[in-house]
């Protein structure tokens, strides 16, 4: 099993957001995590990436059999975990290309590989930029600085394509995208699907899953997975909405 989450609880400033998550993801699989706003989807994505803002109060996370929770965000990235941000951060003054090269080489060094020489690096980035249809001019600009919503998301998928991680976590990658951008981003993601790679696709809407077909769908509510199923579950949710969950949760609570 590539990723195993067992009974995971996480809190921010004393208030509990994740309340007992169990999830297993194997190589080659695509898992969708759906759920209403505030259900803890983004928190789960950030906890997996190592955000210090969230305190893990219980449970464990194993990545390729190794405990993840005591590792820094950079160590997790070096192990092959990638988070595509819902809101990619703008970093004025740091050129996108320089950032990419620093990141690639930091990951390679950590894995005991040689750094990429500048020519090989440029070839790699150009090829991947074509894949996600990212304007090469954006490589020379500061990271995400003044990028449109769609450009920011393409830039995330570009990084994913360049780093070739083992586990990709996509946090609401569809939010703020028009249908053309959505299709491009989904094509980029699909091109990276492979038997060695796992993906967790966090999304509020079923729309993205029309393009990135999941193997498993999980519904998160109140910080727990309340239902799991195959890809047909996503279509069912599209019809019924999330109202039934709220009713059920309210019913269970009373």
């Amino acid at each position: 099993m590539m990723l195993e989450i067992r009974d995971l609880y996480a809190a921010v400033e004393g208030s509990e957001i994740l309340k007992g998550i169990d999830l297993a993801v194997d190589a080659g699989e695509v898992h969708a995590i759906m759920g209403p706003n505030g259900s803890g989807k983004s928190t789960l994505a950030q906890v997996l990436a190592g955000r210090e803002l969230f305190e893990v109060t219980r449970g464990e996370v194993l990545f390729e059999g190794e405990s993840l929770l005591d590792k820094s965000p950079e160590e997790r990235a070096q192990l092959g975990i990638f988070l595509a941000f819902q809101y990619p951060v703008e970093i004025p003054g740091v050129q996108n290309l320089y950032f990419l090269r620093t990141a690639v080489n930091a990951q390679r060094r950590a894995r005991g590989e040689d750094e990429l020489d500048p020519a090989s690096f440029m070839r790699l980035v150009r090829e991947k930029a074509r894949l996600v249809e990212l304007d090469e001019k954006l490589l020379k600009r500061a990271v995400n600085d003044g990028f449109s919503g769609g450009e920011k998301k393409r830039n995330e998928i570009l990084q994913m394509a360049v780093f070739e991680p083992k586990l990709c976590i996509l946090d609401e990658t569809d939010s703020g995208l028009d249908i053309d951008a959505l299709r491009t981003v989904a094509d980029g993601v699909n091109a990276l699907r492979s038997p060695e790679r796992a993906m967790i696709v966090v999304t509020h809407y079923q729309r993205l899953l029309d393009y990135i077909e999941p193997d498993r769908v999980h519904v998160l509510s109140g910080g727990r997975i309340v239902r799991s199923g195959g890809k047909e579950l996503a279509r069912e949710l599209e019809k019924t909405g999330y109202g039934w969950i709220e009713n059920r949760t309210a019913g269970a609570g009373s």
Partner: peptide, 20 residues
């Protein structure tokens, strides 16, 4: 956090941001 999730160590991430 963003830079670190890309595998850039904390010290280097800070250096990049301060230079920027």
């Amino acid at each position: 956090f963003y830079l670190r999730t890309r595998g850039i160590p904390l010290a280097e991430a800070r250096r990049m941001l301060i230079r920027a």
